[in-house]
Simulated scan of single mutants.
Amino acid sequence: MAPSTIHLTVNGSARSLSVDARTTLADALRGKLRLTGTHLGCEHGVCGACTVIVDGAAVRSCLMLALQAEGYEVTTVEGLGDADHLGPLQLAFRKHHALQCGFCTPGILTTAHALLLEEPDADEARIREVVSGNLCRCTGYLPIVAAILDARSAYAAQAGAAA
């Protein structure tokens, strides 16, 4: 079967790419667009390392075909900030030392970003529930949860400004 061309928006930029029918969104992001912050761990949707945001929802990109992203807006960890202008979650993760090896961090950041965009006042129990789908073998989650709690005020301010 010949490759298909898909059109989507990635981190705010319109993109077109040629993909085979069986190419996952994770593989397209990493291989075609060189957005290697999206990590592949289990490739079964269990670990959460490949989590990206598709039209506002946290999605396991190893389980979604690239063809399914046609017309959608995709945000990867690279879209949350850059080295010169970190996003509020990235700043909070740095402040709280909420990463160690860093393998799980992009998926946790995108998961938490999607949560705080929708629920900027999420309490600790809700945060723990949501990030429980992202496996981290290094930190024990305490600094991760503290960082997400700390970042809430920035998301609440954004939500207030948008209202």
Rank of each mutant, 00 (worst) to 15 (best):
A28Y: 08
G31A: 10
G31V: 11
G31I: 06
K32Y: 04
T36K: 13
T36F: 03
G37Y: 03
G37M: 08
T38R: 07
H39G: 10
L40G: 03
H44I: 10
V46Q: 12
A49H: 02
C50S: 06
T51P: 09
V52F: 09
V52G: 15
I53Y: 06
I53N: 15
I53C: 13
I53D: 09
D55A: 15
G56D: 09
G56Y: 09
V59Y: 05
L63R: 08
M64K: 11
M64T: 13
L67G: 09
L67Q: 06
Q68C: 06
A69G: 02
E70L: 02
Y72L: 11
E73K: 14
E73Q: 13
T76N: 07
T76V: 04
E78V: 09
E78I: 07
L80T: 06
L80R: 08
G81I: 08
A83H: 11
D84T: 13
D84P: 00
P88G: 12
L89Q: 10
Q90D: 14
Q90V: 12
Q90A: 11
F93E: 06
R94L: 14
R94P: 00
R94G: 15
K95E: 15
H97R: 15
Q100T: 02
G102D: 07
G102M: 02
F103K: 10
C104A: 13
T105G: 09
P106W: 06
P106L: 06
G107M: 05
I108S: 06
T110A: 11
H113N: 13
H113A: 12
H113R: 02
A114W: 08
A114F: 03
A114P: 08
A114I: 07
A114Q: 07
L115C: 08
L115I: 04
L116Q: 07
E118Y: 00
E119I: 05
P120L: 14
A122L: 02
A122T: 10
A125K: 12
R128Q: 14
E129A: 14
E129V: 04
S132W: 00
S132N: 14
G133E: 06
G133W: 01
G133R: 04
N134K: 03
R137D: 00
R137E: 00
T139H: 01
T139A: 00
Y141M: 05
Y141F: 13
L142R: 12
P143D: 05
A146H: 13
A147E: 11
A147K: 08
L149V: 12
L149P: 03
L149C: 09
A151Q: 11
A151H: 03
R152P: 14
R152V: 08
